[in-house]
Amino acid sequence: MNDKINEMLQRSAQNANQSEKSFIRPEDEEREVIAPDGSTIKINPIYDYFSGKKPQEEKPLNGVVEKFLNWARAESIWVLGFGTGCGSIEIPPLMTPRFDAYRFGVQMRATPRQSNAFIISGYLSVKTLKRVIRSYEQMPSPKYVLALGSCTINGGMYYDSYSTINRLDKYIPVDVYIAGCMPRPEALLAGFMKLKELIKEGKAEKANEYARNFDEYKANQKKIIKDWNMPDYNW
């Protein structure tokens, strides 16, 4: 029996120094592969598979055209279907007869490629933040973020939780905060109206701001997401 005990002890000692080990899964570590003609190829799963370029600012065009395009962007906001936290149950009612966001050109889209608005609806655990960042970065340039609920503003009731973030705008730029410990759909519609105004006034250029101080955002993100097995900017 005693060899079982000290074997257990030895195991627990080895686990103790867990903090230094990297969290990258074996699949994502560098590996060697034999090519058909026998030569070996070194594969770096991050730099070989992803374009990994830094985002750059995309300046808006001059006056009238940009105003007109902003008008079009305001009138047709396509929201990415990505629900986090308890607020995502507030979004479906928008599609029902009672609230009917279609009237305002708001539509749900399945892929980040085709969507312009990203609704962060509630507390954001570190795990979800990692996926939110990838989806946000994959959205094309004029993109807006609506943050619902107090959890995205100051951590809400999970302010002291070890796994949820307190201030969303430290990690991704936010256009419109909609306060409430889950705002009702009407509040959400009001948020959309606010967003429309911002877009029409051309003040919804958070995407460029994200590109400008990208490193700072990325540093914050990487501080809390330890197993960052993705490229810096997810195209």
């Binding site: 079009a72 962007r73 047709s76 094309p140 340039s141």
Partner: peptide
């Protein structure tokens, strides 16, 4: 709405 959507899509800056 379809025209606006078309315009907005053409107006998207990143390709």
């Amino acid at each position: 709405q379809p025209w606006i959507d078309l315009l907005k899509n053409i107006g998207i800056r990143t390709t």
